[in-house]
Structures are given as structure tokens and as C-alpha cells.
């Protein structure tokens, strides 16, 4: 177990990170992601509060859908990346990263303060539920033995289901590059639900595999590819910005950056051999530094090193650069992401 954002989390189960990774790519695994926060936002003006707080445009989706979005500071830096579950017309579950729940709650509380309806409610419900992410090509088929309703939810859809007499929520989302769902279940039945998933042939997987899976899938991790000083545009996530909607924090900084040109930009790199590239390594072009690695590891699926790096904007896919690794320079090729699987 390791400390993670105020939670004790398993880095791996006795199966081991590599086997857990393989099972997620070939069968089905479950991650306990209860450390993700849940902030319930309710009321007539909930839509307006979320629309004015985060970057993405809620009008691109509708009730019963999930949307990936960002909370920015005034300079456009990403304070958190978030999934919003639009439960029904006036009810949203906003799901920040573990250590950023307070930040996101505070930002939404600011919206409450500016609310004139007097009916907007923002409540941290993290302690009331567990969130279990069932991921992998066989995820839905095996989950169906536990709940056919949960297994049937569409990609980026949100729906209710019942387990053990309790109302639960499921979304067709995940962080692995595989098909799968995330289930929020009340703590009263969480352990029973977990056991039922294991009985259905779904193997538990820990933080180690979660990280290698998301890296192969080219998905950013807050604190690495996203953070203060890094905008969504730097991270190649311009699609997360609702340019056509109204004001939100960081908007004018993004407009300035968009006009001036984005520098640096996030790129994928692959290395030969098994040695894992590591965060912080300088990326060199003919001996000159053009950026640095934000995340890197051995890719269990590909059998060689993969990395994400913030690089100078004139670097193009196909360019051959090198990493300043301990013991010498390692060639690294710029590639399109994801490294494995389909586009997110």
C-alpha cells in the first residue's frame, strides 16, 4: 500500500503490475478508484454553475452523459481535470482527482456565492460511495453477471442501476484505453459489489497498472502532463475548451495563448529497448534541449519504452530526438498518441 492524495492505495495486488496490465488489455480488471472525489451539484442553476466554472461546453452533451473538462486558474493553468456525470436535468456529479477535490469544491462554492436563485447546492459526497472501474475487452460481458444494467451503459453515457437494493450510478468511462465502465456504489454495499466482481472473473488491479495503462493510452495525469503553468492547449487538449460558450476562469489567457502560438506542446516518444524513460529527463535535438519527459515507463504491451514529453512546437512526429538518461543519450522517436489502442 502507498499513500496517494490522502488515501492508502495498493500499488499492485499479489498478481503484480505487469500481469494486471496484461489482463486489462486482454480480459477484464477492476480498479478501486474511490479516491476520485465526487461533488454533487444540484439545483435549477447547476448547469450554469458548471458551465461558468469549467472549460468544456455542457451544451455539447445532455442529461445522461459524461463529459471530460478542466478547472483552470486565471493564467490558464490546469488546476484539475475532471469528469462530469450529468445524472439528470438539474443533478451533476463532478469527479475531480483525489488531492484536488477541495479545489474543485471551492470553485463550485464560488458559483453558489454568485447564485441568485438561492437553490444551488454543492456537496462533497466522496465519503458516501465507492467507485469501482471495470475495464478491459471482457469488462461488460463479465460485469453483466453482476448487473446487466450496469454492463449495458453506453460509452460516455451515465445511467442508474440497482445493486443489493441500493441505487447506484454507472458511466461508460475509464482511464485505460480499453472499453469499460465506472460504477459508483453506496459504501453499504461496496464490499459486496467488489466481491461479486471478483466472483465474476474480474481481477483486481492497482495504481501501478493504472499508470502504465493510461500512459500507453496517451492519457494525461494531473501533476505530470497537466498542472499549474500547463494549459489544456499545451497538453494537446484544445477539444476540452468550449470556445463558443461564455466566460470561465482562464478563458482570456487561453485566447492570448492561442493567438500567440502554443509552446511547449505535449508529444509521444518511443525508445528502443526495455529501459523505462523517466519523468524529468531532458529531451535533446542534436545536443540542444527541446523539452523534458513528463511521464515515462516500460510499455508492457509494446515491450519497449514510451514517454510523454513537453516539447518545442517545431518538433514533428517522425523526428528522431534523444533522452538524456543516466549513462548516456537514448534515441527517442516522436510518435502520434495513443501508443496502444484507440483514440480516447
Amino acid at each position: 500500500m502507498v499513500p496517494f492524495g490522502g488515501w492508502e492505495m495498493p500499488l499492485s495486488y499479489p498478481t503484480g503490475t505487469l500481469e494486471e496490465h496484461r489482463l486489462c488489455r486482454s480480459e477484464a480488471v477492476v480498479f478501486d478508484v474511490s479516491h476520485l472525489g465526487t461533488v454533487r451539484v444540484e439545483g435549477e442553476s447547476a448547469h450554469r454553475a458548471i458551465q461558468g466554472t469549467f472549460t468544456n461546453d455542457l451544451d455539447r452533451v445532455s442529461p445522461g452523459r459524461a463529459q471530460y473538462t478542466h478547472l483552470l486558474d486565471d493564467s490558464g493553468g490546469v488546476l484539475d481535470d475532471i469528469i462530469v456525470w450529468w445524472i439528470d436535468d438539474e443533478t451533476f456529479d463532478v469527479m475531480p482527482n483525489a488531492s484536488n477535490t477541495q479545489r474543485v469544491s471551492d470553485a463550485l462554492a464560488g458559483a453558489v456565492a454568485g447564485d441568485t436563485s438561492g437553490q444551488l447546492k454543492v456537496r462533497d459526497t466522496t465519503a458516501e460511495r465507492a467507485v469501482l472501474a471495470v475495464q478491459g475487452p471482457d469488462a461488460r460481458q463479465r460485469l453483466a453477471a453482476v448487473s446487466a444494467d450496469a454492463a449495458a451503459v453506453g460509452r460516455f453515457r451515465v445511467a442508474g442501476f440497482e445493486f443489493g437494493g441500493h441505487a447506484c450510478t454507472v458511466a461508460g468511462t475509464g482511464y485505460t484505453g480499453e472499453d469499460g465502465v465506472e460504477c459508483a456504489v453506496p459504501v453499504a454495499v461496496a464490499a459486496e459489489f467488489w466481491d461479486a466482481l471478483l466472483d465474476a472473473g474480474i481481477q483486481p488491479a492497482g495504481l501501478g497498472a493504472r499508470d502504465t495503462l493510461r500512459l500507453e493510452a496517451g492519457l494525461p495525469l494531473h501533476g505530470h502532463e497537466l498542472g499549474v503553468g500547463i494549459t489544456p492547449l499545451n497538453a494537446g487538449l484544445g477539444w476540452v475548451v468550449g470556445w463558443d460558450k461564455g466566460e470561465f476562469p482562464g478563458r482570456s489567457a487561453l485566447e492570448t495563448q492561442r493567438a500567440a502560438g502554443v509552446d511547449p506542446v505535449l508529444r509521444g516518444l518511443t525508445t528502443e529497448g526495455r529501459r523505462p524513460p523517466r519523468e524529468g529527463q531532458a529531451v535533446l535535438r542534436s545536443g540542444e534541449q527541446v523539452g523534458s519527459v513528463t511521464s515515462g515507463n516500460f510499455s508492457p504491451t509494446l515491450g519497449h519504452g514510451v514517454a510523454m514529453a513537453m516539447l518545442s512546437p517545431d518538433v514533428e512526429p517522425g523526428d528522431v530526438l534523444s533522452l538524456d538518461a543516466r549513462g548516456g543519450e537514448v534515441p527517442a522517436v516522436v510518435v502520434e498518441m495513443p501508443f496502444v489502442g484507440r483514440k480516447p
Binding site: L11, S12, G16, L18, R274, N297, G327
Partner: peptide
């Protein structure tokens, strides 16, 4: 260490 992926 966890799962070893490279030995120099």
C-alpha cells in the same frame, strides 16, 4: 521493487 522490467 515490484515487477522488474530492465536490468543494467
Amino acid at each position: 521493487l515490484g515487477d522488474v522490467v530492465f536490468v543494467q
